[in-house]
């Protein structure tokens, strides 16, 4: 039982990550793929915070001495475990992953906005946001340009002939 509790969080986060990846791979619509991307980013955040949680720990905000919450929190843990994990009378979760994920979320929104702006410009340039149609129109445009290049070359060769 305890090994299940120990790894269940990691497995759930991995399933969410793979779900986000699947959404990115399977849809051809650019906007839906951005949604898949933000699911993936959120699940990375979930993974970091899973590793930061200390059993019986509380929010990493220092509690001052006279706060009644100290006794309340201490009463919930068995003493043997309490000595090893506590810092001056309170067990705190690890604050470091919180800092990383906090900025990752805000930067994630900035990149989401830039990605959506690109999608809007792709829509205005190609008239669609579906991946296949964009590739098809690209091929047509390349074929068109290469045909024009040949025309220019033939005219150039005739001109100097």
């Amino acid at each position: 039982m305890s090994s299940f509790v120990g790894y269940a969080n990691y497995f759930a986060v991995i399933i969410l990550m793979m779900g986000g990846l699947y959404v990115i791979f399977s849809t051809s619509n650019l906007i839906k793929r951005m949604i898949g991307l933000s699911i993936l980013q959120t699940s990375v955040g979930l993974f970091y915070i899973t590793t930061s949680k200390v059993f019986g720990g509380t929010v990493p905000i220092l509690i001052d001495e006279d706060d009644p919450a100290r006794a309340e929190l201490a009463s919930r843990l068995d003493p043997a475990y309490f000595e090893s994990a506590a810092y001056d009378g309170v067990v705190y979760s690890n604050p470091l992953p919180h800092v990383l994920i906090l900025t990752a979320i805000v930067v994630g929104v900035a990149t989401l906005a830039v990605g959506l702006a690109i999608a809007v410009r792709v829509r205005e340039a190609y008239g669609t946001v579906e991946r296949e149609e964009i590739e098809r129109k690209d091929r047509i445009r390349h074929a068109h340009e290469s045909y024009e290049d040949e025309l220019d070359e033939t005219e150039a060769s005739e001109a100097d002939a």
Partner: peptide, 28 residues
Amino acid sequence: LVCVGAGVLLFYAALDLPLFGDPSAPAN
């Protein structure tokens, strides 16, 4: 298929991670 494959690999890798909530984990 790709996602399931990657998921299985990640499951296998997750087995070495410290247990959930372990205070003696190196990071904590």
